[in-house]
Design a protein around this nucleic acid. Structure first.
Lengths: 145, 145
DNA sequence: CATGAAAATCCGTGTCA
DNA sequence: TGACACGGATTTTCATG
């Protein structure tokens, strides 16, 4: 994991469709060497997967909200319960007053309300505080450099 | 934007490196037809880009926190000020008590503290409430189906 | 769907710590 | 000596009509 690896990752985050020859040129490597490095980054799990970034609105997921989930019990083993709700994009255990923070995307605020209702059906959940996003400034990949 | 498009997107989210022949087979299309569909999805901006998903810890960004930023002024034009802080991965204008919600990734809690300090230098920022993530259950792409 | 062009992948060889 | 980079040969994939 040196500066060349970081440069490769930054380039791939920007555009993972570019040819290894182009990629190599951008970081000062031959196509083969660039390919080798990237393969190893994948093997080591540094690069988890190659994916596409999709416009949520086009998928009928125009409403974004963050929900603080309060609980009356240990939520450490509740991964599956949260993962079972398809509208939940992220779920994190947090320090502080609430126990779980989830990021939710729905088509409408009605659907958001329905997600909140389903959250209450999860064992141990005692309350929710939803914060609706009015405008997203930006969402970008983790900085590699 | 029909069910086939949604299936294509779901497949690409899972693995964007697969060949169009494989992709086509997965959704019941020929390689050429799959290629055509995906090209159009890119042109229409539904697929914004192809990127790699990287392990934040490997990049020295093992600490994740969400920060509620309070303000004494309209923050609607502050995109650039937040974007200038490289540790900020997402920034959203929110409804409710605080005005901006940011997602921050740093190597250490010391660095997190430094990010908070820099947030206070942004015009109009009057307070912050940081919530540190103890464990991430999951982070996944927006559901396409 | 076929076909030329281009890219990915494999592998032998050389080189630098 | 081991890890890495190079570059050519082969196979696969892409993109065009």
């Amino acid at each position: 994991m040196d500066d060349v690896d970081r440069a490769l990752i930054a380039e791939l985050q920007r555009d993972a469709t570019q040819a290894y020859a182009t990629l190599g040129k951008a970081v000062g490597l031959s196509a083969g060497a660039a390919h080798d490095r990237v393969r190893k980054l994948r093997e080591r799990g540094v690069i988890r997967r190659t994916t596409v970034d999709v416009d949520p609105t086009a998928l009928g997921r125009g409403v974004l909200a963050f929900v603080m989930v309060d609980s009356s019990a240990w939520m450490g083993d509740a991964t599956e319960s949260f993962a079972a709700v398809p509208e939940i994009q992220e779920a994190h255990i947090i320090a502080g007053t609430a126990s779980v923070l989830v990021k939710v995307r729905t088509a409408t605020t009605d659907q958001l309300q329905d997600v909140l209702r389903r959250l209450y059906t999860i064992e141990g959940v005692s309350g929710t505080q939803a914060t609706v996003v009015l405008e997203t400034f930006f969402e970008r990949p983790v900085r590699a450099d």
